[in-house]
Amino acid sequence: MRTIDWVGDAVEIIDQTALPDNTIVRRLSTVDEVIEAIRSLAVRGAPAIGVAGALGVALAARLHADASEDLADAVARLRSARPTAVNLARGVDRAAARIPDGRDAVLAEATALMAEEEAASAAMARAGADLLGELCGDRPRLLTHCNTGALATVVGGTALGVVTELHRRGALGAVVASETRPLLQGARLTAWELGRAGVDFRVAVDGAGPFLMARGLIDAVIVGADRICANGDTINKIGTYAHALGARRAGLPFIVVAPESTVDVATATGAEVEIEDRGSAEVVGFATARTTPPGTEAVNPAFDVTPADLVTAIVTDQRVIRLDRGERI
């Protein structure tokens, strides 16, 4: 099933905040509901929020008159719902460009984007599996970070799509999914998707990754991306940079898998990207439990920047870029 879709004049999503305990399909009938779902991470993952943004514009076009201030405001609020991933702004802009052609044209553009993301997942899975076979041989043991499966896209996935493709080929050794502090997207979402796919996996705390690499228990690291800059710097979930450093120290391939729509040639380096800080609440406690002394404040960057010189290769739906061989975006 699609994890985000347009159904009967509304957006439907699998609510990722309810997983793994409950699989809840939420129906989003207003632009404010779409924005809240993006900000609360009920829908997350760069390709998925790009689709959500485009479908949000289609919803806005049905709720507001053409060329109205309300419509323009809705588009602007959708575009800025989260600042770091480039796909959101691109999805919104692409759908909004069709507003002069009418609401049906806007919806057609949004659903075309959704179909393209589905096709991109399949292409990345094949290319990434082939690359890992070339770099690691048969049955590699992989470490992945955050969630990069169908929940982060529409179907299939980016890095996790490669993992499941290797599994389908009978060419996967095992997977370690890092927890992904502070919201545990790896422990909650990736583990849920790997279990449903029948993939052999274990969960590890984020800080264990480099040690597992050093001990020879990992053959390659494979992650997704929320933005890839013109020089190859990769913006991804916080903790990615540490895994890249661990992989470099252990001499392991570090592979980034993301659709071509995540490549942002207009941004020269990672230093230019606004990194979202999500505030203290997510760090000082979890669910209803406080884990720090009262009054504790936290720094909570949602993403980090992995320098291009730590990346072995970038796999998109259109190409494989071997940064380790001097290839450029």
Rank of each mutant, 00 (worst) to 15 (best):
V175N: 14
V163R: 12
T144R: 09
E109K: 10
R139Q: 04
M114N: 06
A125E: 00
C146D: 03
A177N: 11
A119E: 03
A177V: 15
A177F: 15
H167C: 13
G137H: 04
V155N: 08
E165D: 15
A150P: 05
A177K: 14
G137R: 05
G170W: 00
G157C: 03
A177G: 15
H145F: 07
P140L: 03
V162C: 13
E134W: 00
L143H: 05
A159I: 05
H145G: 08
G170R: 03
G157V: 01
E109H: 12
S178A: 08
G137K: 07
A122S: 09
E165Y: 10
G173S: 10
L113D: 09
P140C: 03
A159S: 05
L143I: 10
A120P: 12
L172I: 12
D130V: 06
L113Y: 12
L135C: 09
S121L: 01
L132Y: 04
V154D: 10
A152D: 03
A123M: 00
G156Q: 06
R141P: 02
A125M: 03
A177C: 15
R168D: 13
L131G: 08
E117T: 08
V155S: 13
R126Q: 01
T111G: 13
A125V: 06
V176Q: 02
L160R: 10
L135T: 04
C146H: 14
A115I: 01
E116L: 08
A150E: 04
A150G: 07
P140E: 04
A171I: 13
T164L: 11
A120K: 03
L143P: 07
D138N: 09
A152M: 05
T158S: 14
V176K: 09
T144Q: 10
A115R: 11
L160T: 06
M124G: 04
M124P: 02
G173F: 10
A127V: 00
R168M: 08
V163G: 14
V163L: 12
G137S: 02
T153W: 09
R169N: 13
A120H: 01
N147E: 11
E117N: 10
L135N: 05
S178N: 14
G149E: 02
G157S: 05
G157Q: 08
V154R: 15
D138G: 09
A174S: 15
V175Q: 10
S178L: 07
N147C: 09
G170H: 04
R126L: 05
A120L: 00
